[in-house]
């Protein structure tokens, strides 16, 4: 699992490539905490190249959402793949998080 980020106009885009599972989940949390510490509190996690996610991965996303909210911002997800979409539905997490089509769309409405 590889993480990278880029600060855009109104948000920071975090890219997660590979499998977001119980092993890589803590790393995502750590990475996003770092991005927030660097001054971005509006974060889009781009999941375009995340082929697989398990419940631990989703749990880490919630941890990141909490951290972003506590910093006065928000965390959104974009470009989810079919397997990730299924996990979102299975755990009813789609009731909490919207999956945006692309990173650009995520914060386009505000």
């Amino acid at each position: 699992m590889e993480f990278s980020y880029e600060v855009k106009d109104s948000y920071a885009e975090v890219k997660a490539e590979g499998r977001l599972n119980m092993v890589s989940a803590p790393k995502l949390r750590e990475f996003v905490t770092g991005v927030i510490a660097n001054g971005s509190n509006r974060i889009v996690v781009n999941l375009e190249n995340t082929a697989f996610m398990d419940s631990s991965g989703l749990g880490a996303l919630i941890g990141c959402l909490k951290a972003a909210r506590q910093a006065g911002g928000d965390l959104r997800i974009a470009a989810v793949q079919p397997q990730v979409k299924m996990v979102l539905q299975l755990t009813s997490m789609d009731k909490v998080l919207t999956a945006y089509g692309s990173a650009e769309e995520a914060f386009s409405n505000d």
Binding site: M22, D54, S55, S56, M93
Partner: peptide, 18 residues
């Protein structure tokens, strides 16, 4: 199985939050 526990945690989170 961790996956089962985490799944319970997520479902519980959504339910409690709502």
């Amino acid at each position: 199985r961790r996956e089962a526990l985490m799944q319970l945690g997520l479902v519980g989170y959504v339910k409690e939050t709502e």
